[in-house]
Design a binder for these strands. Structure first.
Lengths: 344, 344
DNA sequence: CTGAAAGCGCTTACAG
DNA sequence: CTGAAAGCGCTTACAG
């Protein structure tokens, strides 16, 4: 199927000038007279000219395109994040080529090589959980392609990265709960083998210890990251017969599972038991009662990562090894009761 | 900042052959001997050659890239949809350039013109709610760029489109509820000015009428599409003192608002009142109890739309004006009680 | 103020 | 089996 695109040459022919004149006029080059520019602009509109950016990119050796690799767009956190990256990129006149790795190392490698082939000006990568081979990243480094990791990073490669300060945020949130009069806090944890799981759990433990509250191992229930894991975790807790005042769930899906399991027993949230999760505002408000969260704002992360990358591309931030840990705030919603001492 | 990319010429120089030989060897052209191919492949790996796809695209006049325009990626429905488009595109070796219109006509136009400038092989567009000017779409048509609308379409332009069959799905779902013994069904509607709002409401009314159930205007509460609209709608309903058995909420956010407002009154879902929403499985299961839905599967829509577009690009489906209405199924989850008559 | 030349990195006929 | 020529649509020095 033949397309109908007009070229600068076509315009030049029509106007009986050289195509260089057209090219210059379109870029508002001082060489060209105002009158000629006007004639050319008119012709461009009349003829429906759309500049071939591919050709422009090839000749400029710059694509004004950023490549993104996310593990999974079905995770709404990443959707918000990508949305925010697109916002920031668009502001700076960059396009976005989006790829998904499905948490598979092979896909990730493929995606990155493809993006390099497309000669993106820079890469924004959240590494898959599987990734162990650093070859493709070393290749990007060798090719001097600016790359910024977000959310998850390979630390020993000296690329810039942006992440949440999970441990500190967790400690801070638990401190607030304790200050609010709570002492019995359980944790539905992820796997200690993942950085998310271990960081969050470490924050939980440290907060308790620093407040002189003994850690009860039976209140740390390692499970996973899905709804069913939250259900199972609560069932396990329920079976012990000793309930905490608060459950800290490792993410919102686990929190949702906890909601379901709690409801089944007839207990009421927040009156009989409170829940705290990690997540972000929009999802938290879908819950009823609204889920209290250690609030990890994906838009903030997206904006920071994209700006960092664009700065590196434009050579503003010279030596590409910046580490940014985003502060996370605690959002106390209706899934946890405020005790009297707090209200006053 | 200078990149370090190797070109075919570099490889040719190293091997003392012509760059055409290299080009042919890389495309596995029969002209080239097996021995030479092997030497070249080796050199490619040793030297870290990554083919410049931009140059390839320019010379082939084909980019193997699809352009997407969605109104908003923060709507998880679109996130799932884009994810599925990427899946399908990747299978067929297409890249994705993703743009977001924020429901703004000007952004949409800009995005499309940019994508055409990037010479995407085809466009996948969900038009913004604002869009009234068809100029940019007529331009795409004139340029013979394959375009497929999804979810929302401009019908009188003869482009292909894929949408959900909202009206029929609604009727079917309500029929099932009625067959299950329910007759008192209220509708928290969107705006009748939007196609989504009017289609769904029309399906609701037709189902009641065809079952001989009178329509009670006070049970059709027009509001909006957000959580707060669901809260307000239930408060209005509650104030009348006459509750239905089931509420049909125009989407999952409105359903979530209804959950909250219902809980506040002390009523229990599903025992005192049941809820049915439009949405998709993953979000529905976050609710507790899980939300019954008229199940609009975004992945299905994404896959169908992408395949349709790719077929048109490859000239398989010749005359680009296919309309596909996706059948929607009813997913009966725990937010609606199954009455005895159904269970048996 | 206008234009001819050379180049970006690839590919596709064509000739030998 | 190998390579020289022309082209994709743009841009950037350079010369007049």
């Amino acid at each position: 199927m033949k397309r109908n695109h007009i070229t600068q040459q076509d315009i030049a022919d029509k106007l009986k000038v050289s195509r260089i004149t057209v090219s210059k006029a379109l870029r508002n080059h001082p060489d060209i007279s105002a009158g000629m520019k006007e004639r050319i602009i008119k012709a461009v509109e009349r003829m429906g000219y759309s500049p071939n950016l591919i050709a422009k990119q090839l000749s400029l050796q710059k694509t004004f395109t950023l490549g993104i690799v996310v593990p999974d767009l079905e995770n709404c956190f990443f959707a918000y994040l990508v949305d925010s990256i697109i916002d920031t990129a668009t502001e700076h006149n960059y396009h976005i080529i989006l790829t998904v790795s499905r948490e598979k190392e092979a896909f990730e490698r493929n995606n990155i090589m493809n993006l390099i082939g497309m000669r993106v000006d820079g890469l924004l990568v959240c590494v898959s959980q599987q990734t162990s081979d650093q070859k493709v990243f070393k290749y990007a480094r060798k090719m001097k392609i600016p790359l910024v990791f977000f959310d998850r990073a390979i630390k020993d490669l000296n690329f810039s990265y942006v992440a949440f300060n999970d441990k500190i945020a967790t400690k801070e949130a638990i401190n607030q709960l304790i200050a609010g009069g709570y002492t019995k806090i359980a944790h539905f944890a992820g796997f200690s083998s993942t950085s998310i799981g271990s960081e969050r759990c470490a924050g939980y433990k440290e907060a308790l210890i620093s407040n002189g509250i003994p850690i009860r191992e039976e209140w740390i229930i390692e499970g996973g990251y899905e709804i069913d894991d939250g259900i199972r975790a609560f069932e396990k807790l329920w079976a012990t017969g000793k309930l905490p005042e608060i459950i800290l769930a490792v993410n919102d899906r686990v929190a949702s599972g906890a909601y379901k399991a709690i409801r089944k027993t007839g207990l009421k949230i927040p009156h009989d038991i409170g829940i705290l999760g990690y997540g972000f505002s929009d999802t938290a408000h879908l819950f009823s009662p609204t889920l209290s969260i250690i609030n990890q704002d994906p838009r903030k992360m997206g904006r920071i990562a994209a700006n960092l990358l664009i700065d590196e591309i434009q050579g503003i931030s010279q030596n590409s090894h910046t580490e940014i840990l985003i502060e996370v705030d605690f959002q106390w919603n209706t899934s946890i009761l405020k005790k009297q001492s707090i209200l006053s």
